[in-house]
């Protein structure tokens, strides 16, 4: 397809009106309100539904909600999640909680914050929280283990009490 080139008028060919309008636009912005946010001092208001870092949550009674079903590990596109299942040995302190992860690592350097883990989780045990600024001084530091994830995730209040009647 050939698009015919528009024939320019004399004034247009002189560039001057264009320069003038360009000047007007830049001058307007020059004096206009600035939008820069002074980041470490000023913080951005995270909108609801924002997908930040995925963390594990506890239930009302402070127990790990995760039951180590490993669906998030399976669904994770960049393979950032790695779960070590508990194995057959029952742990005394978990009480009637039948299963929970022995280890639960999320490599935040690999994580792409897609939210699939939250979507696939049948226990509502993992949530993408609002943390967007994750920093560390080495790679190992950026692999968050179960304790860290639980501490960051906090408690999730919901109506279902899975282990109450078991």
């Amino acid at each position: 397809m050939i698009v015919p080139r528009k024939e320019l008028s004399f004034w247009e060919r002189m560039y001057l009106p264009t320069i003038w309008s360009g000047f007007k636009v830049t001058a307007r912005h020059f004096v206009g309100k600035k939008v820069t946010m002074q980041y470490p001092e000023e913080k951005w208001t995270v909108p609801p539904g924002y997908r930040g870092a995925p963390y594990l949550v506890k239930d009302q009674e402070g127990r790990t909600k995760c039951v180590s079903c490993q669906l998030c590990e399976f669904v994770c596109p960049p393979k950032a999640i790695r779960i070590t299942p508990p194995g057959p040995a029952a742990v005394a302190e978990t009480g009637n909680v039948e299963k929970g992860p022995k280890e639960f690592d999320i490599n935040m350097l690999r994580c792409i914050f897609c939210g699939y883990c939250q979507e696939v989780c049948p226990e509502e045990a993992i949530f993408l929280k609002q943390d967007y600024s994750l920093t560390g001084t080495n790679r190992k530091e950026m692999i968050f283990n179960k304790e860290k994830l639980l501490a960051l995730g906090g408690t999730h209040q919901d109506g279902i009490q899975k282990w109450k009647n078991k």
Partner: peptide, 10 residues
Amino acid sequence: KLSAAIQDRI
């Protein structure tokens, strides 16, 4: 500085 001002930045 000038470019920042023109682009609504600081």
